[in-house]
Design a binder for these strands. Sequence first.
DNA 1: ATAATAGTATCGGATAACCAATAGTATGAA
DNA 2: TTCATACTATTGGTTATCCGATACTATTAT
Lengths: 93, 93
Amino acid sequence: MKGYLSYLILWILNKKTMRGAEIGRELEKRRGTKPSPGTIYPALKELKNVGLIAVDDQKIYSLTDKGQDELKSACKFFCQIFYDMKEMSDFGE
Amino acid sequence: MKGYLSYLILWILNKKTMRGAEIGRELEKRRGTKPSPGTIYPALKELKNVGLIAVDDQKIYSLTDKGQDELKSACKFFCQIFYDMKEMSDFGE
DNA sequence: ATAATAGTATCGGATAACCAATAGTATGAA
DNA sequence: TTCATACTATTGGTTATCCGATACTATTAT
């Protein structure tokens, strides 16, 4: 179950700008386990490199316009793949 | 955007038993692109190896009990991670 | 000022996920 | 039977994803 972390970061940053450590804590709340520094910072760096997020001088990460667009299309894509997603919430009971 | 294929296969097989080719077509409907044989058959093999799915002599794949359990806990995990998933459907507009 | 703590970041490596190309197998038609 | 078509499967390799270990930096407390 890999591959969702970057999009989860975008999803989180879309709600609120955060510092790296805060993102880590938010991920821990959601996933149960806290991602290691070797996970989160390379991920942030990559997202920054491709222009989806930005960092200011206070190390506060935020979503760029491009990041918003990307997130939007990712959500669309996801909802298309799991168009029967509603059953999923029920399936877990 | 990787890492969701195996779970998507489980999700699909949970609704209906299928042959490999039919699974491929179903994936195409959902994702837009048809997975290559080199994607789907290794995935099926792996899922079979770990006991989440089974194949009969007619090459019809089906979910095992263990597969159902796994899918159930995966759904739970997913809903926990994206507990604000509802906003996602709206976000794509 | 110094020690302790929290935050930021890099590096190297392991594994997962995926695909293109290829080959074998079954099914049906001519 | 022979050809064509669809299906099943493997191989080899690429890239993404993630982690543990480590190191550097800033902040705070004493």
